[in-house]
Write a protein that binds this DNA or RNA. Structure first.
Lengths: 148, 148
DNA sequence: CATATACATTTGTATATACAATTGTTGTAC
DNA sequence: GTACAACAATTGTATATACAAATGTATATG
């Protein structure tokens, strides 16, 4: 991906500004590819992340604060995100016995099953996005990103 | 920024998946910092980018397709984005004489003036985001991002 | 020149997200 | 035990964005 070509400019972009723009362009591409990969399952990237977090809980239910903490992109409104997953039958929700302010959110078997399919789609998307990278380069990239 | 800490997981994340997540987290941070930097001017990042493109035109008016081509994040609806900038008095719009299907969008003096202020705010934001990077490292980062 | 097609923008509508205010619950100080 | 603050989730509202359909304009074809 060439920055100047992508945003159709002939100007010389200062290095710092170029780096920021570059990261945004890459993120846009990532989002596009992943959103496409998830389209057949009719879940958004955010919803997919919630499912993944719930599976990571290994049966232990999660509440909204926990979900929010662990999400890659924090949302101001996790309630409605969960609402959508409930409608689809992928998660369940009930109020916590020990602390009735909290809710307990769990992934259903249907949710687990569809998540397995999505794993494959996601793996393909990742492979596609990163096919030009060696392991060495990915390590290098991660190291640089740590500086943020 | 530590990925595992940020999304509160103890698991080992596969390298490719970790790279994608890492990029998303970085982009989230960038967005947050920049959105904050632009808040005093009451323009969104998208609107700022339109203003910057228009300035780059050096007086030559732009039409919607041109704007869309050059935007970092492509939008499905540039009309309404421009609407908002017109309301604020930062840009002007009139239908093109030679081809009445097209519109001519230009930045106003008021728009240019405020853009100068925003330049400073943006430069600060960039410096803040990238303060841990050497020039060498930024070049390395850009080179890696080219692989996308 | 009448019709069809392509083009550029605008409008309509549904969904997504951000932010603020509200509701219900728990714990604590008096 | 009543009043108050802190907590967790939900609801309301405004704005943002995606996608599809509609409008108006220009160009090509017979």
């Amino acid at each position: 991906m060439n920055v100047e070509e992508t945003i159709k400019t002939e100007k010389i972009i200062p290095l710092k500004q170029r780096s920021i723009i570059h990261l945004s362009l890459v993120e846009n591409k990532i989002n596009e590819v992943i959103t496409n990969a998830l389209k057949p399952y009719e879940v958004s990237l955010q919803q997919f992340n919630v499912l993944r977090i719930l599976r990571g809980q290994k049966g232990k239910p999660a509440n909204l604060s926990t979900l929010n903490e662990r999400m890659v992109t924090k949302m101001s409104n996790t309630t409605r995100l969960v609402d959508k997953l409930i409608t689809k039958g992928f998660v369940g929700r009930e109020t916590c016995e020990s602390n009735r302010r909290k809710v307990e959110i769990t992934i259903t078997n249907k949710g687990k099953a569809i998540l397995l399919d999505m794993d494959n789609a996601m793996k393909n998307a990742e492979d596609m996005l990163l096919d030009k990278f060696t392991t060495e380069e990915l390590n290098q990239l991660n190291k640089l990103l740590d500086k943020f």
